[in-house]
Design a protein around this nucleic acid. Structure first.
Lengths: 236, 236
DNA sequence: CAGTGGTCTAGACCACGTG
DNA sequence: ACGTGGTCTAGACCACTGC
């Protein structure tokens, strides 16, 4: 089994991140410090850090250091939100929590989250409004064992990205996600909550989010109204 | 104005690619050859090539060389097609050209493609079917000056990705694209061509494709039926 | 000014593909 | 056996940040 040194270093750094040795927003040790800790050259550490920075797990800032990525910073805020207004201006967004229940995980969710078939889950629903216009209806599922203290009240009290709260309150960093996107017709309840006509076309986005080590920790199903907003994507 | 050496090398390589000095699928000179041509060290060339490879403009193959990316190769075929079947199996795809007209560019297309307001454009429509099921209705606009020889016949004769034909016949490589995605209701003509009920929800994808130097060269508006397929995306 | 990441170099050796 | 890209090292110097 052959594995380049820098990949081994990368794996060790990932472990430290996963263990929470360095918290989101904090600086990790300098390249020279890591080099002496691992007994390799600075260039080898650099290559490992470069890859983690390319994957947005770390953030380099010249002259200051290398920092653990977080969802609570201005510059990378709403990293995972791909909905953009059709005409420029960034909207004012507000969140309304509909409910937050601790229940047994449905089979499909348990499977996606690698939970025990009888495991607990947190189910959370909310409406996001942009400029007062209801735009996103989210149906979110989280592993109950990790998010057992989560309540509608704590969510309503918190202002800022939900993923930032997950970091600070539950020690879970969302690192990567896969999405499957479809067009659907608004069902009765969706139509009511999003204030559109039943049968209106909606974008349906099913997201599976992962934390360090590719461990799935969130299933998020979102219905988006795309009359004044669109989902943006770049191909390369 | 400060610019790192490797960025200058990268720009020179981009120029060569744009000029067609190395064609899609061909190997570029080895790192040492480029280093001696540009009078820099091999490591500096490497960093420039690394970035171009990360952007999918070049493809490195250990032991063989570095190659110009192409849309005609198995391994990167349909790079820009994000529609995937809900259940595994890669589908058999067929294309039916509806029409191919050379007309004056509508204002919106002229604007997106940076064409002269009275410039010519090629408008092309087709239906893509997967496993015999009509799934994608594309409405494609190209700059007429570049694609003047394009006909429905040549398209129908060609089997394989349309972008591969653009490379070989017109010397245009699609390098990057931006997409805006919405949910819409099928209009009468769309419904007929896609064999769905009028008003059915469709995914509407507007793509603007770029060639080297970020020059826009294609507007593609696609209506996707997403009952057995979904648009896949990864966030990081 | 000291400390951090960013650039650049030169050289050694390894792994892969081909002949 | 040879040439390619891939890894690793060591050292020099540059650019940005904060005290």
């Amino acid at each position: 089994m052959f594995s380049p040194l820098y990949q081994q270093i990368k794996a060790l750094l990932l472990q430290s991140l996963d263990r929470g040795e360095w918290k989101p927003g904090e600086a990790i040790p300098s390249e020279f410090e890591l080099a002496s800790r691992f007994q390799v050259s600075q260039g080898t550490v650099r290559k490992a850090v470069d890859e983690l920075a390319a994957e947005n797990l770390l953030l380099r800032r010249q002259g200051k250091g290398t920092f653990v990525a977080t969802h609570s910073e201005r510059r990378v805020r709403y990293r995972f939100l791909r909905l953009a207004p059709d005409n420029g201006k960034p909207p004012v967004s507000t969140s309304r929590i509909l409910d937050c229940r601790h229940v047994r995980a449905p089979a499909d969710v348990a499977h996606l989250l690698d939970l025990h078939p009888t495991g607990q889950a947190v189910n959370l629903r909310r409406v996001l409004s942009f400029n007062q216009i209801p735009t996103v209806l989210d149906d979110i599922w989280l592993p109950g064992s990790v998010f057992n203290g989560l309540t509608a009240e704590s969510l309503a009290r918190y202002h800022g990205p939900m993923y930032a709260l997950f970091e600070s309150e539950f020690g879970i960093s969302m690192v990567r996600a896969d999405e499957k996107i479809r067009a659907v017709s608004a069902a009765a309840e969706q139509a009511t909550l999003l204030e559109v006509a039943p049968g209106s076309p909606l974008l349906f986005v099913e997201r599976l989010s992962y934390t360090y080590g590719d461990r799935p920790v969130e299933v998020r199903r979102g219905a988006y109204v795309t009359t004044q907003f669109h989902y943006r994507n770049s191909l390369n």
